[in-house]
Computed example of a mutant assay.
Amino acid sequence: MPQNKNAMARYKAIDERLRRKDYPSLQSLVDYVSQKLDKRVSVRTIQKDLCDMRYSEELNFHAPIGYDYFKRGYYYTELDYSIDRLPVTEYELEGLEIAINILEHFKEIPLIKQFDEAIHQIANAVKISRERLSKAQGMLHIDLPAKYAGSKWIEPIADAIIKRYWLRIEHKSYQRDDSLEYRLAPYHIREYQHRFYVVGASRRKDQQEQKVRIFGLDRIQHIWPTNIPFDIPEDFEPNRYFANIIGISNPEKDPERIELWFDAQQSKYIINQPIHATQEILEQNDAGCRISLNLVINHELLMLLLSYGAHVKVLEPPHLALQIKEEARKLLGLYA
C-alpha cells in the first residue's frame, strides 16, 4: 500500500482526471492534483506517481496509462479502467463470495438490509457477477433464528454510539409486569445466542445513580434520541469487559478458578474446541480430561455445564458443584 495518505490522495486525483478522457498533459495533472490536495505538488512527484500506478507490485494497480504524442496527453488505454476497480485474484474473489454469503444470512436485520445494494456494488467493482453470487449462496449455512427480536433498535443505537449522544429508552424486563424508562449512553452492541444486547452507562428516569447496564434489545419498547453528548470511558474495551464470562450477564463480577472433569467421550470435543479462551488442560488420559477455567459464575455458565449432562463433573469450586447438583435434583424431580 502507499506509504502515506497523501500518496493515495494523489493516485485518486490522477485517476479521476484521467477518467475524463480528455488527454491531460503532465502540467495539467500537476495543477489538478495540487488543487485537489490544496497544496503544490511537484512535476517530479506526479511523474513518479504515474510510474508507480503503472508498475508498482505493492500498489497492484497495474494502471494502463498511455501517452498520446499527437494529443500530447495521458489517457487510459482501457476505456473503463479505474483504480477503484482493483484486480483481485480468484482466491480473493472466493473469499469475498463467502463474506457476502455470510452477510446474506443476516439480511433480515434492518441495519444489514439497507446495505444490500452497496454490497452488490462492491461485488460489481471487483467483477463478481450476480449470477456467480447466486451460485455461491448455497455454499455455507449458518443456523439462525427466523427473526432477531429487537433488531429494529440496532440502527438507532448504533447511530447513538457513533455520534455519542444519550438515548431515552423504555425497557420491560422479563421479571417485571411494567416497563421503566432509562437514560442510556450506549457503548457497545453484542450478540449472544441469537439475541442482541446493548451495553452502556445508564440510570433510571427517577434516579441519579449511574452505572453500566446491559439491556436486551428484544425487551426495549421505545427509543427516543436526545442531543445530549457523552464520552465512552477510555478504560472501556468490550473484549476486555467480557473477557471472563460465558454469555452476557454479570461481567463485572470477579472471575473464579473452575475445575471440570469430562469423560472420555466428551473430552475429545473439549480438547479440540475449548469452552473458553482461559481453558487449560490439567490432566488427560483414556478415562477423560481435567481442565481449568477462569470465569465469572453466571446463569449462562450453569446452563452450559448442565447441557453436558452426565459427561461432566464440577470439581471446583464447591459452591458451583452444589448449584449443579441442586439443578440436577430439580430436573430429576420432574421425572419422578
Rank of each mutant, 00 (worst) to 15 (best):
I297E: 01
S267K: 06
I271F: 07
V198M: 01
S267L: 03
E237H: 15
I271Q: 13
D231V: 14
I246V: 14
I220R: 05
I291D: 00
I271V: 15
Q284K: 15
R213W: 05
R257N: 14
I214A: 06
A277Y: 03
R240M: 08
E256A: 11
G247V: 01
F215R: 00
E259D: 05
R290K: 14
F236H: 04
T278N: 03
I258T: 02
N250P: 00
H276M: 08
S202K: 02
I223Q: 03
L293T: 05
K253S: 14
E252Q: 15
G216M: 03
L260A: 00
N285P: 08
P274Q: 11
I270M: 07
F262I: 09
N239Q: 14
F236I: 05
Q208E: 15
E256M: 08
D218F: 06
E259K: 15
A264T: 07
S202H: 04
Q284F: 11
H222E: 15
L260D: 01
I275L: 14
N272P: 00
D254N: 14
R257H: 11
L295S: 05
Q207P: 01
P251H: 10
D286F: 06
N239I: 01
F196I: 04
Q273M: 11
P225Q: 09
Q266Y: 10
I297D: 02
F242G: 00
D231C: 10
K205P: 05
K253Y: 12
T226R: 06
N227L: 13
V296M: 04
Q210W: 04
Q208M: 12
T278S: 15
A277Q: 13
I245E: 01
E209H: 10
Q210C: 07
T226A: 04
C289P: 00
D206R: 03
D235R: 09
E252W: 09
Q210I: 07
R204F: 00
Q266R: 12
P225E: 06
R219E: 07
D235K: 13
K211C: 09
A243I: 02
I228K: 13
V212L: 12
V199D: 00
G247W: 03
I248V: 12
I232F: 00
D231G: 01
R213Q: 13
Q210A: 06
E234F: 11
Q266W: 03
N294M: 10
E209Y: 10
L293R: 04
Y241W: 14
I258N: 06
N285G: 10
R219A: 04
F242P: 04
V212E: 06
K211V: 08
Y241L: 08
I258A: 03
F196H: 06
I271L: 15
L295E: 04
I220T: 00
S202Y: 01
A287V: 12
H276K: 11
N244L: 09
W224L: 13
E234R: 13
I223W: 02
P238C: 07
R204S: 06
D218C: 02
Q266A: 15
R290H: 12
R204Y: 05
P274T: 08
I245A: 02
D206Q: 12
R204C: 04
G200Q: 00
G247Q: 10
Y241E: 12
I281V: 15
V198A: 05
Q266N: 10
K253R: 12
P274E: 04
T278Q: 07
I271A: 12
H276I: 11
R257K: 14
E259R: 14
S292V: 03
